[in-house]
Amino acid sequence: MTLAFAVKSKTLAKRDKDREDQALKWVKDVTGLSVPDDVDYVEALKDGQLLCTLMNKLVPGSVRKIHTAGPDFKMIENINGFIKGAKDYGVAMNDVFVVTDLWEEKDIAKVTDTIYHLGRLVHKHPEFKGPFLVPKPAT
């Protein structure tokens, strides 16, 4: 077994489909956007558009430009816009994923964790009137 395969296997093992589904549902509820059923979690988030829209719902204007098309670096700019917005909103630096976690699918569980950290912070922002992200109880 190669090191790359071992790392990929460990990363996949950290993912939790229920947490991903719940995080994506919260993002869709807050943004009011829909994602077709045939689009998986990573595909829905990978271009950063949904995440930027989420940030702009939490803090209007926090992501000034959301790229809807263009070369890869434009989509990476979207992801960076979300990351900056999440940090500015109060998510601790060590709780925020890095671009490669999502763009190269290095650590999707970290992406989900970031969304959860962000979801927990909305309680501290009384101006937020949307739905809260409440983790499902462990089974």
Rank of each mutant, 00 (worst) to 15 (best):
I79H: 00
K65H: 15
Q22W: 04
D72V: 08
P135N: 13
F5Y: 12
D37S: 08
G85H: 01
V134Y: 07
I79P: 02
V98N: 01
D40F: 13
F128N: 09
G48Q: 02
T68C: 01
D37Y: 07
K74Q: 07
G85W: 01
G119N: 03
R120S: 14
G70V: 07
P60A: 06
I66D: 03
L33G: 02
H117Y: 06
G85N: 08
L118I: 07
L12H: 09
M1A: 13
H123R: 10
N80Q: 14
I108D: 00
K124Y: 12
V35H: 01
A23E: 03
H117G: 10
P126Y: 11
L118Y: 00
T112A: 05
P135K: 14
T112H: 04
S62H: 02
G61L: 12
L118V: 14
G81F: 00
K17S: 09
L51H: 00
L33P: 01
D21R: 06
K87Q: 15
K87C: 15
D113P: 06
A138P: 06
K110T: 10
L133K: 00
K65N: 10
D18A: 05
K14M: 15
T139N: 12
D40N: 15
V96N: 01
L45Q: 06
P71G: 11
N94S: 15
T68V: 11
E43R: 05
L12Y: 13
I66M: 07
D95M: 07
V59Y: 03
D18H: 07
A4V: 10
A23F: 06
